[in-house]
Design a protein around this nucleic acid. Structure first.
Lengths: 253, 253
DNA sequence: CCTTGTCCCGTACGATGTACGGTACAAGGT
DNA sequence: ACCTTGTACCGTACATCGTACGGGACAAGG
């Protein structure tokens, strides 16, 4: 669910680029690595909307079209950015499984690490929705995150399902968090400010008697979270329920 | 996590538009309702990327800039589209709570209905990531989905948390499904075709001994799902775990 | 009949990704 | 040492986007 096609029509080309060497310089010293890092810098600082080929080229001091010598197009560039960013996740493939607290502790570690990564690079959430980027770092991440689930009574397919469930949950809540940050940055209004500006209009236009449960619960939740939504709470609450559910699955064997 | 700012800087204006009358025609017969419906038609048929103001105007046989008389900008238009689409969800506010199977049956019903809605209008997933669209239909949806959770031993805040958890899960899996469909449409390759095209390159470039668990589990999952991922399975598996977790929360009271 | 306000919309501007073709450099063969 | 060939670089151009601006035309109130 990103914008245009998420990658060129040729998977072989994309894969070769992802797994190939990114440090071989052209005659002006330009490398794939440098392009990707510049792009990540821009996306981190100014958001994915500000990421344009012209902008990247300008930052590198090269002509815009020179980028196309090293990267087939923008979608391949964003794929490269995603794989590179996922490389920040774990120092070691064994990091999650080395965590205390068994599989549950490991999965909480995985969730937190992913959450923090998405907070650092919120633009990732606008890209990864499409077909997974099968790069080297993504593969390593998959291995690292599966290992703690191995040998605890789940089938291979269930291991994949559980991991997918947890990662989908983290992505979903991180997406909400990122959106809140973005709206706040765009409008200059904090979550509570925006809510305060909306409240009088809502009161005038919306009759609470038509929404008895919604208005009661919305009031309580709004008060508790100091805003329309609290992604951090959603993350931890949801993760606890999910892990309880997985534990139940394991126990019933 | 959509593109630009998700709505104008003025919440009051957006809310007034959402809750206002959409059927009052201008002197050429143009209405907000007609604009929104035309936009939805385009997004359904050609995707959100094909949705442009020019395109909408052309379909309605009016000048492009005439749209701006009725709608402040494109982001407000997409907000209107979302609220309108959510109106399709339930015929009656009591529909979910009238479902058999208690709260669990009701929540399964809610999940399936949302899932089907997103399959019908996949473009919604590219919009709703930002701050919730506080329109009339969204409010009604919130009420309808909260009711089955009322009076089953959850606090008000927990009711909101549980619903958020379920909806986030459905959105996340629906997003994957939508992405798969989009990639398939863009490239003309089915999931399995794409995988077959990638496999030889991956074999050459990726050493399975470095990813023992990942390659074993990936193999098993790929075989079971006939592709890199199976969103329908992810939806049902995840929902079962989540509801088990919620049941555990209720039971421990 | 004139004034005023509102609706309609043509033109224009600054973006975007990238196709195309030209230029200039580095390496290999003689 | 010179020529050939391939490839890296990049300037220009095009189609597309959202929408700011201002002018023209119609409806209603005085």
């Amino acid at each position: 669910m990103d914008g245009k096609k998420s990658s060129g029509t040729d998977p072989a080309r994309s894969l070769a680029l992802l797994w190939g060497s990114h440090t071989k310089p052209g005659r002006s010293g330009l490398t794939v690595r440098a392009i990707v890092d510049a792009a990540i810098g821009i996306a981190d600082a100014e958001g994915l909307d500000a990421l344009s080929m012209r902008h990247v080229a300008e930052r590198l001091g090269v002509g815009t079209m020179s980028l196309y010598t090293h990267v087939p197009g923008k979608s391949e560039l964003t794929d490269l950015m995603v794989d590179r960013a996922y490389g920040e996740l774990y120092d070691d493939v064994g990091a999650p499984s080395a965590q205390p607290g068994g599989w549950r502790g490991a999965m909480e570690f995985v969730a937190v690490r992913n959450w923090e990564l998405y907070r650092r690079h919120p633009w990732m959430l606008q890209i990864i929705t499409a077909r997974p980027v099968l790069g080297p770092n993504v593969s390593l991440k998959y291995e690292a995150e599966l290992r703690p689930l191995d040998g605890i009574g789940l089938t291979d397919v269930e291991m994949d399902s559980v991991l997918t469930l947890i990662l989908t949950h983290v992505e979903g809540t991180a997406r909400v968090q990122a959106s809140l940050d973005q709206v706040q940055q765009d409008t200059g209004m904090s979550e509570t400010e925006w809510w305060l500006a909306s409240a009088p209009v809502l009161d005038k236009v919306m009759d609470p008697s038509h929404f008895p449960v919604a208005s009661r619960v919305g009031q309580a939740a709004g008060q508790a979270h100091q805003g329309a939504s609290d992604p951090v709470h959603a993350l931890t609450f949801g993760l606890a329920r999910i892990l309880d559910g997985v534990a139940a699955l394991i126990a019933q064997r």
